[in-house]
Amino acid sequence: MVKKPKVASWYDPIIKAHGTPRPLLRNCLVAFIFGGALCAVAEYFQLLISLIPGISDKDASSIVMVIVIALAALLTGLGVFDKIAQQVGAGLAVPITGFANSITSSTLEFKSEGYVLGSGCNGFKLAGAVIFFGIGSAVVVALIELILGIV
């Protein structure tokens, strides 16, 4: 890893004085409200689906997830997702919608290089990191559980 260079000490205050800071408070609030509402609606549908005879709670959760992923992918393809994401930020990125969008957008983007070498190779370009660290941390957690179980 390369050490990050520092902005020249005399220039740092100038660049900070003129830059517009990210509206952090606004972004956090909007993300909290939008993300929370999105999850609440999904939760409500999960409850409704679980009322259908023969569908377990676990199945209902999977079905809702599939619906949310499909909707995020559809909105990405229609070119709407990135515009909403600019407004609500983490409100769309943290739920599974962000994961779906990262795969759909990469797959669409690299279609021009072909289905195999383009979409196939690049589809997980952004989502790959989530899977990499997801599996990595799952292994660590599983190991801890195993050790604690033995003790």
Binding site: G79, F81, Q86
Partner: peptide, 13 residues
């Protein structure tokens, strides 16, 4: 940057 349709929140500058 990112794929065109990727939903990343860009800063004001």
């Amino acid at each position: 940057r990112y794929p065109n349709e990727y939903g990343c929140q860009k800063p004001p500058q």
